[in-house]
Amino acid sequence: MTEKTQVQERTVRQVVVVGAGMAGVQTAVALREQGFTGGVTLIGAEPHQPYDRPPLSKAVLLGKAEGSAFDLDFEALGIDLRLGREALGVRPGDHELDTAAGPVPYDALVIATGAEPIRLPGAEGVPGVHLLRTLDDAERLRPVLAQQHDIVVVGAGWIGAEFATAAREAGCVVTVIEAADRPLAGALPAEVAAPMAAWYADSGATLRTHARVERVEPGAVVLDDGSRVPAGAVVVGIGARPATAWLSGSGIELGAHREVVADDHLRTSVPDVYA
């Protein structure tokens, strides 16, 4: 008898998966595909049916698609889908997940809450500043593109590149601000990332490297060299960090970047909790 079988027979009657993105959905589906017959509950913070995120910065943003929901029948799979329920904490001693709608008991808990975008310091509350992470974010940005605003994209990473493409296709004037010396500096080696600078020029977007945002004002972005870039809207794409603040006080070990620490079997430092 394998260790996995022993654990299932001893404890696992109810699996709760926190996070209804790609990882969470695939985990829930895989449990059924591999023959797990106990309860499977999938909890998502957003009210929308679980969806794929990459199309948000392309077809959904440009109005070519209304959404990107996964083509799955959760009811037929026996997956209890609970949406609009933000996870607030975990109490491992009680084997309970705390949510905004009350506690949810589990025998095994899977953490799949992914990452959250890093916000631009000093820009919160300034009108016209946007993130692009959720379906609601994409819906808010649709009319911005339709009105063909001058747009400043802060960050020349993947999100910045994809949004700049969509905005140029919509007819917007786009300026991309990047603190590093090249696009995708944090994601790719220099010899791979450097040619991306020419891509921005080819697309008609202006790329400014070695540039840092000093502050955002209504209608403009002020850089650290004192220059002002007109901005009917600002889209921030300066990276993401693990969405793990809700695990505070749970005893689940987090790493240097606030990521959940797990072993090669995806087990965290707390029994019956996986990531």
Results as ranks from 00 to 15, higher is better:
206 T>C: 06
226 G>Q: 07
198 A>E: 12
211 A>E: 13
197 A>D: 07
246 W>N: 01
204 G>Q: 12
222 V>T: 09
213 V>K: 14
212 R>M: 08
242 P>D: 02
215 R>D: 03
192 V>L: 13
229 V>K: 10
227 S>R: 13
209 T>H: 11
211 A>C: 10
232 G>K: 03
220 A>R: 11
189 P>F: 10
231 A>N: 08
201 A>E: 15
198 A>V: 08
241 R>N: 09
240 A>Q: 14
254 L>P: 03
229 V>T: 11
223 L>N: 02
200 Y>R: 14
254 L>D: 03
229 V>L: 14
239 G>A: 07
238 I>L: 00
225 D>A: 01
221 V>T: 07
209 T>M: 03
201 A>L: 15
213 V>P: 06
217 E>I: 06
234 V>I: 03
208 R>S: 05
241 R>V: 06
239 G>Y: 01
241 R>G: 12
236 V>W: 13
189 P>H: 10
249 G>V: 05
214 E>A: 15
217 E>W: 10
219 G>R: 08
191 E>H: 15
247 L>E: 04
215 R>W: 00
219 G>H: 07
220 A>E: 15
192 V>P: 11
191 E>V: 15
232 G>P: 09
189 P>R: 12
252 I>T: 06
237 G>V: 11
200 Y>H: 08
220 A>K: 06
246 W>S: 02
241 R>L: 05
223 L>A: 03
243 A>F: 04
226 G>N: 04
202 D>S: 14
220 A>M: 06
195 P>K: 05
221 V>I: 08
236 V>A: 01
213 V>T: 04
218 P>E: 00
224 D>K: 12
232 G>S: 08
224 D>T: 11
205 A>E: 07
193 A>R: 08
197 A>C: 10
247 L>P: 10
208 R>H: 04
217 E>N: 04
213 V>W: 10
229 V>P: 10
204 G>I: 07
204 G>L: 05
195 P>E: 00
246 W>K: 01
198 A>T: 11
192 V>Q: 13
250 S>H: 04
226 G>K: 01
255 G>C: 05
219 G>K: 06
221 V>W: 02
213 V>I: 03
230 P>N: 11
191 E>W: 14
247 L>G: 09
237 G>C: 09
255 G>K: 05
226 G>W: 12
251 G>K: 11
221 V>Y: 07
196 M>Y: 15
251 G>D: 00
194 A>E: 14
226 G>F: 12
210 H>P: 11
211 A>H: 07
188 L>A: 01
198 A>P: 07
229 V>A: 11
199 W>M: 14
246 W>C: 01
234 V>T: 13
236 V>L: 04
239 G>S: 07
193 A>E: 01
249 G>P: 09
200 Y>K: 13
246 W>F: 09
195 P>L: 00
227 S>W: 13
244 T>W: 01
194 A>P: 06
217 E>F: 10
235 V>H: 02
219 G>W: 03
224 D>Y: 12
241 R>F: 12
242 P>H: 05
201 A>W: 04
208 R>T: 10
193 A>L: 02
208 R>A: 04
188 L>H: 13
243 A>K: 05
239 G>W: 04
250 S>R: 06
202 D>Y: 01
219 G>P: 01
189 P>D: 14
232 G>Y: 00
249 G>H: 14
248 S>R: 13
